[in-house]
Computed example of a mutant assay.
Amino acid sequence: MKPIIVMQSDFGTDSGLVASMHGMCRIVDRELEVEDITHALPAFDVKAASYCLQYTVPYWPEGTVFVSVVDPGVGTSRKASVARLKNGSYVVTPDNGTLTYLQDMIGITQIREIDGQKNRYNNTRDVHTFHGRDLFAYCAAKLASGLITYEEVGESYPVEEIVRHEVYGAEVSDKYVKACIQSYDPFGSAELSVLNVDFAKTGFKHGDMTDITITCEGEEVFHERVPYERSFGYVPVGSNLIFNDLASFVTIGCNQGYFARRYGLDGEKEYVVEIREA
């Protein structure tokens, strides 16, 4: 059985771009199965691409070939790469920070730069702005179909040279966390920079009340006692809670409410979050 190809990008779904990438895979091999994560990632947001991959990749079969194309440097000297992960899957992507969370949370055993002479679609060599189709989808399809081995992708280079974006950390101790808001989910919940597994080290248990303060440039924008619960249904509609999010990080949200909008949180601003025992 051939590996599945799974794609994500910032291309949107209101044009033929995604269909062209799917079609390229079928040109290489009509039997390939091609699926999508999302094509609605924020434009040019490499960090969002990286974040999305880290909580999606573990839930596909070993050997899956992921194609991630958020590529503000398309057509330039940035490396086009294929990373082999410790779980046996592959990620075909520009090496521009997209691999950061995967490197930290799953692990990368090897990375190779795509040989553009051998593993690029020949019929569009005069086009330099659609590597998603002409380089990444094409190379991924050759790899998934078995037309090339991983070693034939191109020359390897040190894993230590992988380009990384900034990763926010967290200070964790007994009944205390200092972190930041690193993203917002589709329901407006604020995803923090503390991993679920690290939050467990604080000693907080489900049902505990916490004291949460959120500041922006030293100004307090939120201060409230908030329960730590398994899920939204443990608090009344409209009430806030903190919980272990599916995307690996502890999150502050509101039962059937949009937390970020309720408190005027701005995705362009930086917020510091402190969690203490109530």
Rank of each mutant, 00 (worst) to 15 (best):
G97A: 03
C25T: 15
I114L: 04
I111C: 04
K86L: 12
P61K: 13
V69C: 06
D174Q: 15
L143V: 10
D95P: 04
K269Y: 00
H223P: 06
S145Q: 13
I162N: 04
G73F: 05
G63S: 07
L85D: 04
L32R: 11
G107P: 08
T13E: 13
C180R: 15
S9A: 11
V67S: 09
H206E: 14
Y234F: 15
S145T: 11
S20N: 13
A43K: 10
V92G: 03
R164V: 08
P3R: 07
M1N: 09
A141Y: 12
N196G: 01
A19T: 13
A179D: 01
N96L: 10
D211I: 00
G132R: 00
K205D: 10
I114D: 01
L147C: 04
Q103F: 03
K79R: 15
P42T: 14
R225T: 12
Y258F: 15
Y271L: 03
D95K: 07
S189W: 08
T215C: 06
D10F: 06
V172N: 03
A19K: 00
H22E: 10
R225P: 02
Y234I: 02
E161H: 14
L85W: 04
N196P: 02
G16C: 14
I148Q: 08
R30L: 10
D198N: 12
G63C: 08
V159K: 06
A260D: 14
Y55M: 03
G218Y: 08
